[in-house]
Computed example of a mutant assay.
Amino acid sequence: MSITMYQASVPVLIRGLANLQTIIGKAQAHAAEKQIDPSVFTGARLFPDMLPLTRQIHIATDTAKGCAARLAAVEAPKFDDVEVTFDELHERVQKTIDYLKTFKPEQIDGSEERSITLKMRTGPIEFTGVNYLLAFVLPNFYFHVTTAYDILRHNGVELGKLDYLGRPSNG
């Protein structure tokens, strides 16, 4: 049995974002329970030269929406990266999930050899669709979701492996 580009992208990204929603929710509840200013968490970093929680979430959502759009050869919506509260971050993640749910398999399947060019600060990077998904999007997406988890866990939010992985499903 083979896996399609759609199966390897959209549902995987939606699941990761749904798990990120859970993680954000637990952090928000923890801040309220412990009477800690939520900005302590949203502005937290693992190390001074790393990006704060808010930017980790911005980048994870940008990576997800950009992936689906590029594989489908459509323009991705622009998010302004202004979300700084837990409620705003929840809304941004949900907006990304809702956007991903608009894609149909036929828009993405067959994009394995599609030429994708990313404009980076260091210059453009060329990919085929499958290489873009497997060698850039998924590692980048999981790096930022993992870093968001790690920032919150490091700051005392009670998170476990299943919060990151989500509950297994057969679907």
Rank of each mutant, 00 (worst) to 15 (best):
S2L: 13
I3A: 13
T4Y: 01
Y6F: 14
V12R: 12
G25H: 11
K26H: 07
Q28H: 13
Q35G: 07
D37K: 14
G43F: 04
G43Y: 04
R45S: 08
L46M: 09
P48C: 01
M50G: 05
P52D: 14
R55P: 03
Q56W: 01
Q56H: 10
A60C: 09
D62A: 06
D62H: 06
D62F: 01
T63A: 03
T63F: 02
A64H: 09
K65L: 09
G66A: 08
C67A: 11
A69F: 01
E75N: 09
A76G: 07
A76C: 07
P77W: 08
K78G: 03
E83F: 05
T85S: 15
F86W: 06
E88D: 14
E88R: 12
V93A: 08
D98K: 14
Y99C: 05
K101S: 10
K104R: 14
P105C: 06
I108N: 02
S111D: 00
E112P: 07
I116C: 03
I116P: 01
I116S: 00
M120A: 09
R121K: 13
P124H: 05
E126W: 04
E126H: 15
F127L: 09
T128K: 11
G129S: 08
V137I: 14
L138S: 05
Y142E: 09
Y142V: 05
I151L: 06
I151K: 04
N155F: 10
G156R: 07
L159G: 07
K161V: 13
L165W: 11
G166N: 06
G166Y: 00
G171R: 14
